[in-house]
Write a protein that binds this DNA or RNA. Structure first.
Lengths: 219, 219
DNA sequence: CCTACCGATCGGTAGG
DNA sequence: CCTACCGATCGGTAGG
């Protein structure tokens, strides 16, 4: 609606990207028309195509840019050299903050990644994997048994489930904001991971000779 | 693909609905064409319109039917009269089972509910609320402090986050199936809810006179 | 940067 | 006349 006067090229691109992220997150990528986006930006449709080659380029930029920021966030926190528990706590807090500031891009990343072409989706998935691995590494330090049981990634994904889903239902009203909810998630998670029983998890760990360990079961 | 011979009217409707749920869950409601659906069903497009008034009727039926089954599931489990903890445990296990059997409908419910018209969406949201309330009731029995702190629903939503998100990333491979993952979720949740500190949650609970309780703060 | 369009495909329905 | 459909095409609109 508000037309920014004499904005630079990069500013215009960012403005368009922000409006695109908002519309995509609300209506979904396929259901958003370039006419709607042009109107939201206060630009003509041909002008849009001056800044972005096509509708698809917007989707790629939104998804890739957001996940790249998340991967960088993980690297930065790991570089701080904190022990596992405060590091994981900080990852949770910072991710909720980041999501709160980029809710539209985040919903696009989680819901519209399926509309990416294989090569673009592959790049995004690699970065998503780096993010999850950062959480899983901290988790393995807290519960080393998770490594052999191959539970670090699944349990990390449960954590992401709580956080990601939060942004589908929580409307911050002061009483319960994202920051407070992040603390609850952290309490729940740190309290819960020590209760996960491994007994029922290793599918059929036969009482094999532990003095003769095998790296891989040959078949 | 497989054209069912001499299927009854109701059978045909169910077959179409199942294919619609699958396509909607894969491509999203707006990006799915009636031509694609007709092809998937092995029917002509006019024949589709013999069974359903329009594309939108399919969306309503998928979402409403699924959430109605979930609400009924909650009612059935509550009718068993179990104590809170085993009841909540059973809710978790049964919901994961139900989602696993209705993954397509579930993704449509969670992602395409935004395309419902207001009156239809309102009905769906009422049933979703009944589902969440069933979980929240059990949670309040386990941690009564959650009631006053108004945390029962938010914490229940964290549980739904873990479960709902599970179906976006977990590809059951035998080693880690939905059933095993449900047990992990239950362990994590039951372990975690007792660690959620209320101290940092009640925003500014002034040390007011507890012997003179007020039902509502007048303003 | 706008008006004016295109090839195609959309959801939905005609006649028979 | 009904039902259960078919091949063909409708009026509008999508991305570009």
């Amino acid at each position: 609606m508000a037309r920014t006067r004499s904005a630079g090229y990069d500013d215009q691109r960012e403005m368009i990207l922000a409006h695109a992220a908002e519309l995509f997150s609300q209506r979904g990528y396929p259901a958003t028309s370039m006419n709607q986006l042009a109107e939201a930006c206060g630009l003509s449709k041909p002008t849009l195509y001056h800044y972005y080659r096509d509708k698809y380029a917007l989707l790629v930029q939104i998804a890739e840019g957001h996940v790249a920021r998340l991967a960088e966030l993980v690297r930065g926190i790991e570089a701080e050299g904190l022990p596992a528990e405060p590091r994981l706590h900080r990852l949770i807090i910072r991710f909720v903050e980041e999501y709160a500031d980029a809710q539209h891009a985040h919903r696009v990343l989680t819901e519209d990644v399926r509309f990416l072409e294989p090569e673009d989706r592959a790049r995004v998935l690699v970065m998503e994997r780096q993010v999850v691995d950062g959480f899983a590494r901290a988790l393995v330090e807290l519960r080393p048994e998770f490594h052999e049981a191959q539970l670090a990634t699944p349990v990390s994904m449960l954590l992401f489930g709580m956080i990601n889903w939060m942004f589908t239902w929580l409307k911050p009203d002061g009483r319960l904001g994202y920051d407070r909810m992040a603390l609850i998630v952290a309490d729940l998670f740190f309290g819960g991971i020590h209760r996960i029983a491994l007994t029922s998890l290793t599918p059929v760990p036969p009482p094999q000779d532990l003095q003769n360990p095998q790296e891989e079961t040959p078949r």
